[in-house]
């Protein structure tokens, strides 16, 4: 564990808490993409099945349980409890265009052709693109509430911090995992446009307006 990975996990934790608070406090999931949340739940389910097979540390286990529990809690809030506020008209990104290539890539490009390893690889590739429906929805609605942009900033920062973690681990432990690194870079690059708008607008108190 290093400071970058811990900061990344905390940023990820913060993002999920911000999202849950937003939905719970405003009793609305307006502006949030349910499809992205479904993809995140699938990502964590596929990646954290090893919860039952191998023990890394208490921290690792607690965080995995938390990420799985909160991702399903978010889906429950969006698709059941506050279903009336779910904006399905703007949440229209074709997720099959993500799932199919990610599945094929996981079967072809992995470290080891085993069930658990292919699931892990699938989850790494899926996480890289899981935010696309959300970013698509923000561009379609042309704007996002500031709480939603703080959620996106924390979520985008998490994998950016992981990139520093991988650089750190490469130089200190000579550890690197190209699949995680490449997917992590792709994932972070997808946020660049949003990061720019976040720093130039949201942090100046303006609303996040995207040129629709």
């Amino acid at each position: 564990m290093n400071v970058f990975r811990l900061a990344g996990d905390m940023s990820h934790l913060l993002a999920i808490i911000i999202l849950l608070l937003k939905i719970w406090k405003t009793r609305s999931c307006a502006g949030i993409s349910g499809r992205s949340q479904l993809l995140f739940a699938l990502t964590y389910t596929a990646r954290y099945l090893d919860l039952v097979t191998n023990w890394v540390s208490l921290y690792n286990t607690v965080m995995k349980v938390f990420f799985i529990a909160t991702s399903y809690a978010t889906i429950y809030l969006m698709y059941l409890k506050f279903k009336a506020t779910y904006d399905s008209n703007h949440d229209t990104f074709r997720v099959e265009f993500l799932l199919l290539p990610v599945t094929i890539l996981a079967l072809v490009l992995n470290h080891e052709f085993s069930f658990m390893e292919i699931l892990w690889t699938f989850s790494i590739y899926l996480e890289a693109v899981a935010i696309l429906p959300q970013l698509f929805m923000v561009s379609k609605t042309g704007e996002a509430e500031s709480i939603t942009s703080h959620y996106l900033f924390a979520l985008g920062s998490y994998r950016l911090l992981y990139i520093f973690n991988w650089i750190w681990r490469y130089y200190t432990e000579e550890y690197y995992d190209l699949i995680a690194i490449i997917a992590g870079v792709v994932q972070t690059v997808l946020y660049c446009d949003f990061f720019y708008l976040y720093f130039t607008k949201v942090l100046k108190g303006k609303k996040l307006q995207l040129p629709a």
Partner: peptide, 10 residues
């Protein structure tokens, strides 16, 4: 042989 339990990250 790749040690598939090497995934110690979240």
């Amino acid at each position: 042989e790749f040690d598939s339990w090497a995934h110690d990250e979240l």
